[in-house]
Simulated scan of single mutants.
Amino acid sequence: MEYKDYYKVLGVERTASADEIKKAYRKLVRQYHPDVSKHKDADAKTKEINEAYDVLGDAEKRAAYDELGRGYRPGQEFRPPPDWGSQFDFNGAEGNDFFADLFAHVGRRGRTGGAGMGGMGGGGFRMAGEDIHAAIAIDLRDAYQGATRTVTLRVPEQDASGRTVTRDKTLSITIPKGITPGQQLRMKGQGHPGVKGGPAGDIYLEVQLNPDARYRLEGTNVYENVPVAPWEAALGASISVPTPSGPVEVTVPPGSQSGRKLRLKGRGIPAAQPGDLYLILDVVLPPASSDRARELYEAMARDLAFNPRERIGA
C-alpha cells in the first residue's frame, strides 16, 4: 500500500492543534464540495479530504498514523510491522488489518456496530456510513425568528455494481431561532449508508448568512446603518427604524453626527446570550435641486458661518 500524507492533504503542519485541523477541514469541504465546487475532480478531492480528516480528526487514530508514518514519503510503498498497533487501543483491531481498514474505507468515520473501529463479528466488518458536509445560506431574519427550509443535496453513493453515482436528496430543515453563522445543523442518519449493517452517517450543514447591504454581523451583535436628515441629527428626533425583529422607535439625540452608534441592548441575534443591535447614524443631505433648496443652503452658509474643517486647522 502507499503512504498518504494526510497533513499535506489538509494543508496543515504536523504540529497543528485539533482545532486547526478541524478549521482546515471545514474550509476545504466548503471549497471542494460537489454541490458548490466547479473543480473537475471535486468528488475525488472531497473523498480525499474526508479520508484525511477521518484519521487526523481522531486523537487515537492520529497518534497511530504519526507513529506508523515516521520516515515515509507520500506515495512510498510500505508495510506496517505485525505488532505496530499493540500500543494503541483499537478495540480488537489487529495490526495490519486495522491499517488496511483505515485506508480501504475512504472517508468513512471510525464508528462501528458495537465492536469499535475494525471490529469483527459474525456478520463481518461493520462500519458507519460517511458523514456529508455541506452549507446552507439563510437570511438574517431567519436567525432572529427561526424558519423551515427545503434543501436538495447531490449525494455520491455506490450502486449495486459498486460504481459511484450521485442522486438528489431533498430534506426539510428546521432553522432554530438564535442560530449564528458557523454553527452546524445535524441530520442524524441521513448520510451515506453503513457498511455491512453499520449505522448510516449524518449530514452536517454549516450555516452561512446571505449578504445584506443593510446589516453587518459580529458574533451575535448586529450593526445597521440608519439614514437621518440633517435637522433630525441637529435638533434631535424620534424616528421609526426597521430591524430584523420588526420596526422600533428610537430617539436621535440632538447634535448627532454621522457614525454615532445607538445601542439597543438585547436586540441582536436572540442566542442563549443575546447580542445587541447597534444603529449607526448616517446624516444624508437633501439635494439642492430646486431654487428654494438652493436659497436655504445659501442662507445656512451665510448665517451659520460653519467651518467643518476647523478641527483639522483648515
Rank of each mutant, 00 (worst) to 15 (best):
P199Q: 01
L217A: 11
P270Q: 00
G107V: 14
S240N: 08
P81G: 15
E206C: 07
G275H: 00
P80L: 01
G182L: 03
R154G: 13
Y223F: 15
V226F: 14
E67G: 02
V9N: 07
G255Y: 03
Y6K: 02
L304D: 08
G201F: 00
T152G: 05
I138Y: 10
D58A: 12
A24V: 03
T174H: 02
A59K: 11
Y53N: 04
P81T: 05
Y215D: 09
E48T: 00
G246R: 04
L171G: 06
L205D: 02
I179C: 09
E310Y: 05
S240L: 10
G124N: 11
D97P: 05
G75W: 07
T150K: 01
Q184Y: 02
V250K: 03
P230E: 04
Y278A: 04
P270N: 03
R108Q: 12
V106T: 12
W84L: 14
S289W: 09
G201V: 09
R267E: 02
Y223A: 12
T164N: 02
G268F: 00
A104E: 13
A100H: 08
P274R: 04
Y65L: 14
Q184S: 13
L281H: 01
I49H: 01
S37T: 15
L171Y: 12
D41L: 04
Q190V: 00
E224F: 07
G191A: 03
H39L: 08
A299F: 03
A52D: 10
T148E: 12
G57S: 09
V9T: 11
H133N: 07
E295R: 11
A237R: 04
R149H: 11
E48F: 07
T174S: 08
T174A: 10
Y204P: 15
A147T: 03
V195F: 00
Q87T: 10
N210S: 08
T170M: 04
R186L: 09
L304W: 02
A288H: 10
L10C: 13
A115R: 10
K4Q: 15
H133S: 14
A59W: 06
K265H: 12
L264M: 10
P156V: 02
T152F: 06
D168V: 09
Y144V: 09
R73C: 08
G124K: 06
G110M: 04
L262T: 06
E298R: 07
Q257L: 14
Y3T: 15
L102C: 12
F78K: 04
D291A: 09
A213P: 11
A18Q: 14
S172P: 04
D168R: 01
F99L: 12
P254S: 10
R79I: 15
R73D: 13
Y6T: 02
A16V: 00
G122K: 05
H33R: 11
D66Q: 11
G268N: 03
R167V: 06
A16K: 09
I312L: 15
N50I: 06
V250H: 01
